[in-house]
Design a protein around this nucleic acid. Structure first.
Lengths: 118, 118
DNA sequence: GTCAAACTACGACGGCTCTCGTACAATGCT
DNA sequence: AGCATTGTACGAGAGCCGTCGTAGTTTGAC
């Protein structure tokens, strides 16, 4: 029992200045992770990992969330047994103004075109 | 001697509608390729492969240019023994409005911050 | 204390990627 | 024709990546 923030253990996040564009792009270049980020942006709040219904195992899901966190795209916080996820909008917008919105818009466009779920 | 366009053999390019966001992001997530794209954008014209002074062998350079072409980021045309490269601005802007500019701006910002060459 | 829920750690496997070196092909110039 | 320039093809090696399964940890509830 370590009382870090709300509850639980701490998770390593890169500082804003440590976020690298290449790493962000690599994180978003995976379909599963792009999907996660899109859902996260749509809900504009905090979602637990279990609220995502991805076609991969839980191990793989954990892996993708870690890649997103370590790249600086999302922030993760434990709350009870759940792990809440949120986009690092402030940091990304501060570092790369307009980039996140362009990326999300591009993903939306492609999803609309490809007939994926909006 | 096949008279395709200006001179020379044809190179396979994806059609505009075949360009996938994930593939583009993956192509740009490599430092060497991001660098190539930045130089290409700065010069806003056609550059031959040999005009790039990359810290890799020619074989590797060829590889990177192919990845960029097959992802739909650049267009390549033979002119004599040289291979001219140009950004597919029209197609990318048509598919993902604002994305390319945001990406280039982000890369510029990071380069300025990191003290790389502008 | 016990139990279920949520997530992690570790090892493994197949596949892709970046890199190189060497050998080769296409073009243009003399 | 001969030759230099430019870029390609092919194979190889090291490393990373996405995926899985199993076993384990942390937390909250009963």
């Amino acid at each position: 029992m370590t009382d870090t923030a709300t509850t639980g253990r701490a998770l390593p996040h890169p500082a804003r200045e440590e976020i690298r564009l290449e790493t962000v792009l690599h994180a978003l270049s995976d379909p599963m992770r792009l999907r996660i980020v899109r859902e996260l942006a749509a809900d504009e709040g905090e979602l637990s990992c279990s609220q995502f219904d991805l076609p991969v195992t839980k191990s793989t899901t954990t892996h993708h969330f870690r890649v997103l966190r370590e790249s600086g795209v999302i922030r993760q916080v434990y709350r009870g047994t759940a792990k809440m996820n949120g986009l690092r909008r402030d940091d990304l917008d501060g570092l790369f103004p307009g980039l996140l919105d362009s990326l999300l818009a591009a993903a939306d466009r492609q999803a609309a075109r490809s007939g994926d779920s909006g």
